[in-house]
Design a protein around this nucleic acid. Structure first.
Lengths: 153, 153
DNA sequence: GATGAAATCCGAGTCAC
DNA sequence: GTGACTCGGATTTCATC
């Protein structure tokens, strides 16, 4: 996994903004020949600099209009306890993000559901039933100011 | 902005997983002709069901190995106060997510920087200097269990 | 009004340099 | 890294249901 030069960075930046750019268009934007651009891009994918390309679907259009952040505190802070919780969270499709954090919580989750009623059900039936959960704190998102911004590089 | 039928949903799901799928391949996966698939996909983009296609860049590879969540409380809860804060946050490239929430905080931010030292600088120089900020609470992410999972639909 | 087949044209992928 | 060559897919047209 060699280092990234200026051209690589330009390719990454372009693709981060428009993942469906054709190789020809991409080459024009980063000022290299199509052949070179193709090889560079290939490498960036093959060596894991780009972990995937994904279409962003408008959440509301697919019945996922509500966003909720949840702080979770576990009963015990043992490796087994963490592992069990993480394993269970990975199975929950509604959980978009899950991070182990330092601070007042053990984990912070980002969850998308249809509406508040849906979240209430999820909370009562699945969230508090997750392995080792002592308490949760819910933060309903009232306004999404910024979502998934591009990486600043 | 008409509704989505089964074929549309299959296209969205496929593209959410692999945004660079060729139209030919996509058509094969959702079982329609390339022509139909092309027209459907076009519509999904044009009518805003797909808001963009983005390459996901490995954060560590571009010097953004540290992830930090920050809870922010403002001085006053006035519309002007919120607007000023939001405007300033939109200018900060390091802030990936910013959500207005109900609960102990006014806003929850997701921030990517190089390392803890970098965050400390950002916190001291920019975060607490944001308009109307009374206090912040920092949650360093120690482990990213799940990041940006696909929408469950 | 949407579909799939066919026809055209442009870009992806490969090769020699 | 560049330029050229070939083949496959993107995109449009059109007849059809």
């Amino acid at each position: 996994m060699a280092a990234l030069d200026r051209v690589d960075l330009r390719i990454l930046r372009a693709l981060q903004g428009e993942g469906r750019l054709s190789n020809a268009e991409l080459a024009a934007r980063v000022n290299v020949s199509p052949a070179t651009c193709h090889r560079r891009t290939q490498r960036l994918f093959d060596e894991g600099f780009v972990t995937g390309v994904r279409a962003e679907v408008a959440p509301g259009a697919v019945g996922l209009g509500a966003l909720v952040m949840v702080g979770v505190v576990l009963d015990r802070s043992t490796p087994e306890s963490f592992a069990a919780f993480e394993g269970a969270v990975l199975e929950m499709k509604e959980v978009l993000d899950c991070n182990l954090v330092a601070g007042d919580f053990d984990y912070l989750l980002k969850i998308r559901v249809r509406d508040m009623a849906d979240f209430n059900k999820l909370h009562g039936q699945k969230l508090i039933a997750l392995p080792g959960v002592r308490q949760t704190r819910t933060f309903f998102v009232m306004k999404e100011v910024k979502e998934n911004a591009r990486l600043p590089f």
